[in-house]
């Protein structure tokens, strides 16, 4: 109860404070530069010059303090020792390129980067194409989209249950091993099986991200001008040809957007690996390795250096996004 009062009070103080800030500063501005009197036009101009900054101020403070400043402070920390006290130059980075666990994380991240966006986009496209043509399409869409609402941790529980292992001779309670046994195979402890386990973790993320890809691609597919499709059909194109030769090329831009958005998610993947294997058995990824050095290793230098690597991997997409956004604004 007490906790709820705390939360409620914060909402009231936070929201009320914000509102109060906006009200008061705007009122003050109108007082200082009244839109009346002898200098009316000069006053209006000045007020208009100041007001945007009043509107922006809280957002700018939060963004600077919580996103921009950490970027630079992380760079600084990455050239410091474990406690952030002594300057150690590039030695954290030098450690990294020789650390087998880091190299494993890089290798896995590259695997994730190749597999997850590709398969999520593929299944998303497939789901979009299929569900747009059936009567119960909306229901089907909702079902495929549903994992988006499930937390990565919840999804990990769901899938860990699918991968569960019982020794041979016992009844399998994990779906995967039950299927394997039904086809005459021997049950496996999947999550400790190197290489295979990484792919099984990727399945979880693909399962979550496909719905996202489907929703965006389905909207794009519906935006394709009817004439192009009709013309192709009149020319005798088969449904598959229509799809791959006419529709897909027209939504290529959207496919790229979906692909990059999922790529960003993949680069930050953390929860799934932490909860399912905690990076053991060759499944480590950068996001979880960074957390490991932060919490278990208590080494802010190395953890920051790994974070910087993640940032560097994201940067090309960031620049591409900014350029596209600017192009669109013109």
């Amino acid at each position: 109860m007490e906790q709820f009062f705390g939360a409620a009070t914060t909402i009231v103080i936070g929201v009320g404070g914000c509102l109060l800030y906006f009200f008061l500063t705007n009122m003050l501005l109108d007082r200082i530069f009244p839109a009346s009197g002898p200098n009316i036009s000069r006053n209006i101009n000045r007020a208009n010059a100041v007001r945007p900054w009043l509107f922006l101020f809280p957002a700018l403070i939060l963004l600077t303090l919580y996103l921009v400043y950490p970027l630079f402070w992380s760079i600084y920390l990455s050239v410091m020792d474990a406690n952030g006290r002594a300057f150690v130059g590039m030695s954290n980075y030098a450690w990294m390129v020789n650390d087998p666990k880091f190299l494993e994380s890089m290798r896995n991240n590259i695997l994730w980067l190749i597999v997850v966006p590709a398969l999520s986009t593929f299944f998303g496209l497939l789901a979009a194409a299929l569900t747009d043509r059936i009567r119960w399409g909306n229901f089907a869409k909702a079902m495929i989209f549903m994992p988006m609402a499930i937390s990565f941790v919840g999804a990990s529980v769901i899938w860990k249950f699918v991968y569960d292992f019982r020794p041979e001779g016992q009844n399998q309670i994990g779906l995967l091993n039950a299927i394997v046994e039904a086809f005459g195979g021997a049950p496996e402890t999947w999550l400790t099986h190197e290489i295979v386990n990484s792919f099984l973790l990727m399945v979880v993320l693909i399962w979550i991200q496909t719905g996202f890809a489907m929703v965006i691609l389905s909207a794009a597919l519906r935006g394709i001008p009817e004439e192009t499709v009709e013309a192709a059909i009149l020319d005798g194109a088969s449904p598959l040809q229509v799809f791959f030769r006419i529709k897909v090329p027209q939504i290529w831009g959207t496919i790229l957007v979906v692909w990059t958005t999922i790529t960003i998610t993949v680069l930050k993947v953390f929860d799934i690996v932490l909860t399912m294997t905690n990076g053991q058995w060759g499944t480590q990824v950068l996001g979880n390795y960074m957390y490991d050095w932060l919490v278990r290793g208590q080494d802010s230098g190395r953890a920051s250096a790994i974070a910087i690597v993640i940032m560097l991997l994201v940067t090309p997409i960031m620049i591409w996004n900014i350029r596209n956004a600017r192009k669109e604004m013109r």
Binding site: Y66, L67, S74, A307, V314, I317, I322, A325
Partner: peptide
């Protein structure tokens, strides 16, 4: 500023953890 906001969209959370915790 708009460009900056678009850029910040993709900043990985991992980067912010240590500095903010210290802050």
């Amino acid at each position: 500023l708009i460009a900056a906001v678009v850029g910040l969209l993709v900043v990985p959370l991992q980067l912010a953890l240590i500095p903010l915790l210290q802050l």
